[in-house]
Amino acid sequence: MGNFSVKWDTFWEIFFEQGGSNRVLEGLLNTLKIAVLGLILGIIIGTLIATVRVLPKYKVLPRILNGFCSFYVGLFRGTPVVVQLLVGYFVVLPLCGMHFPSLNVCIAIFGLNSAAYVSEIMRGGINSVDIGQMEGGRSVGLSYKTTMLSIIIPQAIKNILPTLGNEFIALIKETSVVSFVGASDLFVAFNYIGSNSYDFIVPYLVMAIIYIVLVIFISLLVKLMERKLQKSDRRN
């Protein structure tokens, strides 16, 4: 550790003069792309799944859909995301005779994966809204759907926002395994710098700092949004 300043100089040299910064920037962009698009995909699919799972189950179709959705959630929560990536990229796609860029596959897999978690978060959020809110809506003649959309879900989203923020943070951190299928993220960029200088101390340290800064930034954002949504709780 004595020659830390030398290591630091080597890192800076590769970072600035040998194109390291471009790779880091590209890696950071890819990391964010996978996490953000994955979360958006997850929220869309997750909301659909949660909707199916809270639907009243008098009829046959909701029951079948519910069975399928709980199978889906069980499957994606029951396997590590690395395994899902590997199976998706090296097993499912080739079997279907398809090929996509690894970045797109990563976005899709992370989206499908987080959909399973988001659906459970949403379901909990919807169930946490007092049943009286639904009865209040139905009593004035609003349909189940209208009450759900304009009364229940807005309150559920407020309840689950912190948890959804955590899901996003978890997603960002989990993306660090995408190199398994050849996508280049933050980890790949710093790994490149490390390999070129035969020294991993500084690159990995900087990588860790970048991850932490990202997470702190997102936590702040979530807190801000939460405060804005809590308007209806405050006495004014």
């Binding site: 007092d130 009286g132 809110q133 009865e135 209040g136 809506g137 139905r138 009593s139 004035v140 003649g141 609003l142 349909s143 009364i151 807005p154 309150q155 407020k158 209806s232």
Partner: peptide, 22 residues
Amino acid sequence: INIHRQKMGMVFQHFNLFNNKT
């Protein structure tokens, strides 16, 4: 039932006002 509930109001013990609306 929704059509008929429009003409049949209900007031609850716990009010059940919509918390996310003014």
